[in-house]
C-alpha cells in the first residue's frame, strides 16, 4: 500500500499546505513536524516561485518571504529529505509552478523527488495538454502526479484530467486564487459527487477552507480537505516561532476532519 493509499484509508484526511522556506528553510522543518504532530495526514510543501499566478495575497507574500530568505530548490529537497528521515508514513507532496520544476530537466526533478522521499507533485500550470513536460518523468520515477480539477472542469474534460494522475485528485472548489472565499457547501457536494463518479483515486477539496467547522462540513462528503492559506497566515504572523500555533490549528482541524463521519 502506498503512503497515499494508507493516508486516505483511515477515513477523511487532512491535507495541509505551507510554503517551503517561509520564513526560513530551518523553520519549515519544524513547521512540518508540527503539522504531523497536530494530526495532518498529507503534507503539501510549496516550492517558492517569483510569479505565483494562481495564488492570493497570503501565499504570494509567503513566496516572497521564502525567496527573500534565499531559499533555493536544493533547500526544498533538503527540507523534504529531513522530513522523510523523521516521518516515514506521512505522504509528502511538492506543490508549485512549472518553471522551477523543469528548469534542470523533468528527469532531474523526478529523480530528486524520489531521492528525497517525495511521494507526489502538484504543478499548477501544467494541464493535461502539456503532460509531456513533466508527467512521463514523474511516472517513470514512481512519483505521483496530482492534478487539479476545478468548477470549470466539465464531465467531458474530466477523463483527460484523471488520465495519468495518481495519489489523489485535488478539487479546487473556487474558480479563483488561493485564500479567497470558500465555495457554497452545496456546490462542493455536487462537485465531489460528480468527480467521485469518475475518479478511482481519493478526492480532496481545497481553496478557501480556513476553520475546523468548514473542514468538517467538507470531510462529510470528500476524501480529504486541504487547508493552506490559514496556516500560511500563522507563519506570517509568528515567523520563526510559528510551529506551536501551527500545531494548535492543525490539531483542531484534524479533530474536525477525523470526527466528521
Amino acid at each position: 500500500m502506498s503512503r497515499f493509499e494508507a493516508a486516505f484509508a483511515k477515513g477523511p484526511a487532512l491535507v495541509t499546505f505551507v510554503t517551503g522556506g517561509d520564513p526560513t528553510p530551518e523553520t519549515t522543518i519544524s513547521i512540518l513536524d508540527a503539522l504531523v504532530d497536530g494530526g495532518a495526514d498529507v503534507i503539501e510543501l510549496g516550492m517558492p516561485f517569483t510569479d505565483p499566478m494562481a495564488d492570493g495575497p497570503a501565499i504570494q507574500a509567503a513566496n516572497i518571504r521564502s525567496l527573500g530568505a534565499g531559499t533555493t530548490t536544493a533547500d526544498i529537497f533538503h527540507i523534504a529529505a529531513r522530513f522523510r528521515e523523521k516521518h516515514s508514513n506521512t505522504p509528502l507532496v511538492l506543490m508549485g509552478y512549472a518553471n522551477p520544476m523543469v528548469t534542470r530537466g523533468a528527469d532531474w526533478f523526478a529523480a530528486q523527488c524520489r531521492k528525497a522521499g517525495v511521494d507526489g507533485v502538484i504543478c499548477v500550470d501544467i494541464p493535461p495538454e502539456e503532460d509531456a513536460e513533466l508527467g512521463p518523468a514523474l511516472r517513470a520515477a514512481g512519483v505521483a502526479l496530482i492534478r487539479l480539477a476545478t468548477p470549470t472542469t466539465d464531465a467531458a474534460r474530466l477523463p483527460a484530467v484523471l488520465d495519468g494522475s495518481s495519489g489523489f485528485l485535488y478539487y479546487v472548489s473556487v474558480a479563483g486564487i488561493t485564500g479567497m472565499q470558500q465555495a457554497a457547501q452545496t456546490s462542493i457536494e455536487e462537485a465531489v459527487a460528480r468527480l467521485k463518479a469518475q475518479a478511482t483515486i481519493p478526492v480532496a477539496v481545497g481553496f478557501g477552507v480556513r476553520t475546523p467547522e468548514q473542514a468538517a462540513a467538507i470531510a462529510r462528503v470528500a476524501d480529504g480537505v486541504v487547508v493552506g492559506s490559514a496556516l500560511v497566515d500563522l507563519v506570517a504572523q509568528h515567523g520563526t516561532a510559528a510551529a506551536a500555533p501551527v500545531r494548535e490549528l492543525t490539531a483542531a482541524l484534524a479533530a474536525a476532519v477525523h470526527g466528521a463521519r
Partner: peptide, 20 residues
C-alpha cells in the same frame, strides 16, 4: 494544432483557465 512553435509556445495554464 497544440499551439506549439517547435518546442516553444503551448498552453501552460491553471486548470481553471484551460476550458476557457
Amino acid at each position: 494544432e497544440r499551439g506549439h512553435f517547435g518546442q516553444f509556445g503551448g498552453r501552460y495554464v491553471a486548470e481553471t483557465l484551460m476550458p476557457l
